[in-house]
Design a protein around this nucleic acid. Sequence first.
RNA 1: GCGGGUGUAGCUCAAUGGUAGAGCGUCAGCCUUCCAAGCUGAAUGUUGACGGUUCGAGUCCGUUCACCCGCUCCA
Length: 532
Amino acid sequence: MTANAEQTESSVKSMDDIMSLCKRRGFIYQASEIYGGVNGFWDYGPLGAQLKKNLRDAWWTDVVMKGCDGQLGPDGKPVEIVPVDTSIIQNPKVWEASGHVGGFNDPMVDCRETKSRYRADHLMCMGQKGDSTGQIYAFIENDDKSFETALKKLSKYKKQDLTKDDIDLCPLTDLSVDELAITVGPDAKEVGTLTEPRAFNLMFKTVLGATGNMEDNAAYLRPETAQGIFINFKNVVDTTRVSVPFGIAQTGKAFRNEVTPRNFTFRSREFEQMEIEFFCHPDDSKAWYTFWRDWRMSWWQSLGLKGDNLILREHDQDELAHYAKEGAGTSDIEYRFPFTAPGFGELEGIADRTNFDLAQHAEHAKTKLEYFDNTRGELAKNGQPKGERYLPHVIEPSAGLDRGVLAILCEAYTPDPDRASGVYMKFHPRLAPIKAAVFPLVKKDGMPEIAAPLAADLRKRFGHLGTIEYDEKQSIGKRYARMDEAGCPFCFTIDSDTLEDNTVTVRHRDTLDQERIAIDKVPDYLAEKLAL
RNA sequence: GCGGGUGUAGCUCAAUGGUAGAGCGUCAGCCUUCCAAGCUGAAUGUUGACGGUUCGAGUCCGUUCACCCGCUCCA
């Protein structure tokens, strides 16, 4: 191990310790714990639920209500975003159009090189007759073009002109693991990029109607919130006064029956997304892609995910998803989690989806989803543009809320052997589930009588943002220590001086500094610190 | 899906096949004038679950569930 790697390892926080604190302080519990748990699901406790809500609210406020926090778009105008809240269950045809359902119950084969997916029983393989050595070439059954391509590749490999009569054919499903390793996929150049055939039930299936049966009434829990937006694109355009460019945003649960849920809440089977589908003219997609990529990065940074642990990573061409535009951008905002270090894990993906989704739904639903843009086109006699009809391109910033919470938890977790708790949670005040605590230094001498009303006042003004804690039990040090583990940024303490001069002590979580301020200034002080 | 590891109180962990414990935390009371002080009490376990071996299982065996690590996978 190099000195550098060693250093990296020792500076990585312990995921076990973080999970332990999450349980101990009520951030995150294993789902169905008293029944032995259930793989891939997690429950949020009191502090976790508030933390998650605060992160969701920050997103909602900055994205939807403030339109990118007031930042102007590449067109120099305010960014327009409207919200929707769509169903988890939709017409199953939605998922056929989106490409999620294809061959749902059939064994599928993926190509690691081209990211293509094939039905295993639709793939055939060819090799030179009488020659069992060398590479095998796969092609799509009853697809002449695919067959010719494979034959050409085989001919080139064998350095001789082969015809139909020179080859042996067999179904791909007959290949052994070793043979699969020397097989070239239908659209691939390298060998061994095809995965073994396997049933691919990524979507959760359910039944509609109390007496429904699975065959006739199957439906799916959505595997992403995005499609709910695309299928409502026309509704939003028709019923609101938005005009391209504009975005539609929503937060909500999505479900994926992951093969291997792993890494605490990072890959769960039920998770919450925060998605924006931003619709723009095809010519402007690149500018908007850059805008969103950069703004989303700065947004995460503004919530405390700063420094080397957060990176913006542009995808290589060979890892573009099926909907992504070739030559256009896809990038990930990634966080260095303790379990991915020194690597990174995805928090949010920003993709140029082109008009893929709208085109798919227009075709499958037999509906026109084109947008009529009356600010474009050549000018008419009256000097006004004649307008242009087009399918907008879509830039999609798609963030994982649960992953965001996990990153915030990991980033906030700060071991400190010098303080009583041994650790504190350095949440950004905006995200902290407990906004402030009010303590009487001791439970006598009239201090509780002053502290309790102060807590009630703060609760009236700030209670919609998070908890205002009041505690008079046990020693002051113990109460401070509890607040450190809960990540409460400010404690206001009433002591004997308060009785004399109406000042209180403000105790700062991160620095342990204390200052005195007038008791009637506490609400404004807190408002300022919470950046309201 | 494969391989390895781990499951005992809220947390961290003990317990030679022979009465399930400690520390911390939690709660109540007293005390306490700024960072988990102290004192007195209290609650908390089908030892992940099911089955087997045994006079007797937290401990041995089997199955299963969950989590962690490494592969695989993650349109």
